[in-house]
Design a protein around this nucleic acid. Structure first.
Lengths: 132, 132
DNA sequence: CTTGAACCTCAAGTGGCTTGAGGCCGTAGC
DNA sequence: GCTACGGCCTCAAGCCACTTGAGGTTCAAG
């Protein structure tokens, strides 16, 4: 199949497929008249890449996961990748929740205290209030 | 004061100050012998920028906030920026929580079902399970 | 044989900086 | 005066994961 068919089947854009090839994430396929021709293995690989990206694994992690799949290693590595990833997702959530609390407090502070006064005096813009 | 003093006082790096100037976020200061010399106004502005960035406002939003401060506009705009921002923080949190649920389910699925089997068959890597 | 879609490569843009190369300025000690 | 050294200067490139654009080639249909 040609690149457009492959891309559509995997739900990614054509330039993205070429990009993945350029960074060595997908193997360069055979060519016919200069155009890339893919087999079903390529679709499987691309589907896996997309799945990893949807789970928000980085390109480097995705590369490692692909390698362990292609070598049919036991899936302990996969699981430990996923666990590490889960940790970073949770850290990110914690950061964002702290930020949410801070910003929400500033907004309600503005509503009760300063709403309508001059911007330089607005509580939202006073330094040192943020829990960051 | 010179750029190093300013940067330290505001808690940002020297290249960051120059970067902010290059994108028009901070006004170009006077020069002595080619070197930038700043007054206390510049420190105030830079502190405000840093505060906005800590609250995770984008550079463009920060620019708008700076402008409204310098024009001493009433702070309703500031508040609506903050409210919009709060909305996007909450959306991001919701996304990440969904992702957390998905990945956590995959990890525990691997533990109970496939742990140790070949990576291509690991439940973590099966497409279509993710709620994304 | 011509149209038009799909393909090709290469380069640059996105955000918010950081890092590096290569060189100038200012001050302190000798 | 002279040298050493830190701090300053500009400009360019790197980071991540793509997207967008320019300009040209190939393929399938009519």
């Amino acid at each position: 199949m040609r690149i457009g068919v492959l891309a559509k089947a995997a739900g990614v854009s054509v330039p993205t497929v070429r990009y993945y090839e350029s960074i060595g994430l997908l193997a360069p396929p055979a060519r016919q008249g200069g155009q890339r021709i893919y087999g079903s293995q390529a679709l499987k690989a691309l589907n896996l890449v997309r799945h990893c990206r949807e789970l928000d694994f980085s390109i480097d992690e995705t590369r490692d996961i692909l390698a362990s799949v292609q070598q049919r290693l036991p899936c302990n590595d996969t699981k430990s990748f996923a666990e590490k990833h889960l940790g970073s997702i949770r850290r990110k959530i914690a950061e964002l929740r702290a930020l949410e609390t801070t910003v929400a407090a500033l907004v309600s502070g503005c509503e009760t205290t300063c709403c309508g006064s001059a911007a330089p005096d607005c509580v939202i813009l006073q330094p040192g209030r943020g829990g960051t």
